[in-house]
């Protein structure tokens, strides 16, 4: 019997969500095929790769290429500018590490000033990530969302604990995009989307952050959760799981042993920077294959590689 491939498209599709404005705006989602199966249907929007910077800057010990890349960039705005120019970048993610009350505890006013400078320094969309402290993040997101009005900025994230305040300010009052963050669990993800839309945030303004783990560190749960989310969205037309997914990969991968062990302490493992990049790209690739519409990476070499892989699959 001769073989004819049967393209598999669905009657449902992932929501299209726009980040940023102008020529470099990025649209996430839109596809009615399983992740990366662009042979089943021509892609509407390519998966997007973001580059992460922090307000405090990276400790680039053991990472000479990363240090060289940001060499001479003293302020967050200067780093953002360099980051935005890296090959393959679709958006910049600014993470407010310094806002953490348990750390530098920078004031909201300081953070707002940094956000403004960064926004002015780049022409690609901006994603803002907090410091993981619920109270501080809610305050920070609201203040930053206010000064970024009209710029379609995405905030990571609204959680079960603070979705009401974050959703109301970021999503409703200031018309920005809201990241809905849940803990690697399809039911929790859906529940958060339900309550967020009940609050009045439009489904098209929500991007899901389902959490992540580095390759080898419980990634099977990440893969299976993403697999199930995509099956629910496309096969069962579950509108509460059709939001595009953004996975912050870098924060997970740059904290595991494989990425942070100095070469001097483990000579047989070879270059630390190479290990860190591979851990980041391998994890990112697995996230995209399972169902992330976008990933956030730290190293410019990782961004370049993942963007090249996506381009080769389109």
């Amino acid at each position: 019997m001769p073989f004819t491939a049967k393209p598999r498209t669905f009657n449902a599709a992932i929501n299209e969500t726009v980040l940023g404005t102008g020529a470099k705006a990025v649209t996430l989602g839109g596809q009615n095929v399983l992740p990366l199966y662009f042979f089943d249907n021509t892609p509407k929007n390519a998966p997007a790769v973001g580059i992460e910077i922090t307000d405090t800057g990276y400790d680039a010990t053991g990472l000479p290429a990363l240090a060289a890349f940001y060499d001479g960039a003293a302020t967050p705005a200067e780093r953002a500018k360099k980051a935005a120019s890296a090959e393959g970048v679709s958006f910049v993610c600014l993470r407010f590490e310094g806002a953490d009350p348990g750390g530098l505890n920078k004031s909201i006013a300081d953070c707002v000033a940094v956000a403004k400078d960064v926004l002015n320094a780049i022409d690609v969309p901006l994603v803002v990530a907090g410091c993981k402290n619920i109270e501080k993040d809610a305050e920070l997101f609201s203040a930053v969302a206010e000064v970024c009005q009209g710029k379609n900025v995405l905030f990571l994230s609204a959680r079960e604990e603070d979705y009401k305040t974050v959703g109301a300010s970021v999503g409703l009052a200031y018309g920005q995009k809201v990241g809905a963050e849940s803990a690697v669990d399809i039911n929790l993800a859906k529940q958060l989307n339900v309550v967020m839309t009940q609050l009045g945030v439009s489904a098209q303004s929500i991007v899901m952050n389902l959490g992540a783990a580095a390759a080898g560190y419980g990634f099977e749960y990440v893969a299976s959760t993403l697999d199930r989310v995509k099956a629910a969205a496309l096969e069962q037309n579950d509108t509460m799981l059709q939001m595009p997914v953004m996975t912050p990969v870098s924060v997970e991968t740059w904290s595991v042993k494989e990425a942070i062990m100095a070469e001097a302490d483990m000579p047989e493992w070879g270059s630390q920077e190479e290990r860190g990049i591979r851990m980041e790209t391998v994890t990112a690739s697995a996230c995209l294959a399972s169902g992330a519409e976008s990933v956030i990476l730290r190293h410019p070499a990782s961004v370049k590689t993942i963007a090249a892989m996506i381009a080769a699959l389109l």
Binding site: A215, G216, F219, E220, E258, G270, S271, R275, R278, M279
Partner: peptide, 17 residues
């Protein structure tokens, strides 16, 4: 190399549980 193996074998071990 170890740079390839550490994430790839870890990923494989996760997925095939």
């Amino acid at each position: 190399t170890y740079a390839d193996a550490l994430p790839l074998y870890g990923l494989r071990q996760n997925i095939f549980t």
